[in-house]
């Protein structure tokens, strides 16, 4: 990323390097850079990095938040695999990723495929509308969707209205349907982000590629796999990363719509973390959830970055 700015150069000769620093820097002794960074670094380190370190420390303790803590070794981490509540929460998070990430990406691709064939009028309008769920507070979205999924809510009214009343149910109160219902809310939020990303990407794919594909006799499906999909490689990775991160740390929607219920049907790691740290006094265990979640997010980001590495390089700074 930053490699391109220091072109070539003999790295072994420090004197020349220092000379170049001086020439490239805008007329300041380069040490002044530290002063510019210092205020931000202090706030960032004290309020964010230091507590993160403390989280790691906490995750190795048994602590109820009040009395003296005792060393726990890795037990808080092994608990992630043995405690059925925690296993459930992480399992739900993985299921929700299908809704939060995979489905929005697929919807976005579907649209991008359709869009690649024509020039759409009113793009600005569609983009604004589709992106809107991203902008509204998750808490508000949760309340909005509760009204739709309620027993006498919009969804059930529509179902009854078109004679499918037998399908009507208490969506958020059902052991089977609560998790997919929460997932639908996530898909609704993530959909616009993916679409907007892919629409922008699809417009950048050279039209000649489509012409060429058509001359070669490729149908719509061939064309999609041969031209659109490779052309959107970078956008897909960005979309997957953003939606997966937001899916993994999802808390607001669950808190507002189901509170993890019915039973533990819709608990997620962040919800378990909140419960344990601030309701049931298992602070160490909560710390381990937080660290595990962070590692998971980090891995997802890294892995997706890896997958697209090599191709599509340099398209975006």
């Amino acid at each position: 990323m930053s490699a391109g700015t220091t072109t070539g150069g003999d790295r072994s000769r420090r004197g020349r390097l220092a000379e170049r620093y001086r020439r490239r820097a805008p007329g300041e002794p380069r040490a002044v850079g530290y002063l510019y960074i210092l205020p931000a670094l202090i706030v960032y380190a004290v309020v964010l990095l230091f507590p993160f370190g403390q989280s790691v420390w906490l995750s190795f303790l048994h602590w109820d938040g009040l009395t003296r803590a005792s060393y726990a070794g890795f037990s808080n981490y092994t608990q992630l695999f043995t405690d059925p509540d925690l296993r459930g929460a992480f399992w739900h998070a993985i299921v929700l990723l299908i809704f939060y990430s995979v489905i929005p990406v697929c919807i976005g691709l579907l649209l991008a495929a359709a869009m690649s064939r024509i020039r759409v009028r009113g793009m600005t309008f569609f983009r604004a509308v589709l992106f809107l769920p991203q902008v509204v507070a998750m808490v508000v979205s949760g309340v909005a969707w509760r009204a739709i999924l309620a027993p006498d809510g919009l969804l059930n009214s529509v179902l009854r209205g078109i004679g499918l009343g037998s399908l009507a149910r208490t969506w958020l109160g059902s052991y089977t349907f609560a998790l997919p219902s929460v997932g639908t809310i996530g898909a609704w939020v993530g959909m616009g982000l993916c679409m907007v990303l892919f629409l922008a990407g699809a417009q950048r794919i050279p039209k000649e590629l489509y012409e060429a594909a058509r001359i070669d006799g490729a149908g719509a499906i061939r064309e999609f796999f041969a031209v659109t999909l490779p052309g959107l490689r970078l956008e897909i990775s960005v979309a997957l990363t953003l939606t997966m991160i937001s899916g993994l740390k999802n808390f607001d929607v669950v808190y507002v719509t189901t509170s993890g219920g019915p039973g533990t049907a819709t608990t997620v790691p962040a919800y378990e973390l909140y419960q344990r740290a601030f309701q049931t006094n298992q602070v160490g265990s909560a710390g381990a959830i937080g660290v595990a979640l962070t590692v998971l997010i980090f891995l997802v980001t890294l892995l997706i970055g890896r997958l697209v590495e090599g191709k599509g390089e340099g398209k975006r700074a």
Binding site: I37, L48, P51, K249, L273, A277, V283, G287, L293, I297
Partner: peptide, 23 residues
């Protein structure tokens, strides 16, 4: 130092909120 800041983009609130509350 720059990457240290960028790291913050992937740190969810969940990763620091518990100790921060006690601090």
């Amino acid at each position: 130092l720059f990457y240290l800041f960028v790291l913050g983009l992937t740190l969810p609130a969940e990763s620091f909120v518990i100790p921060l509350y006690f601090d």
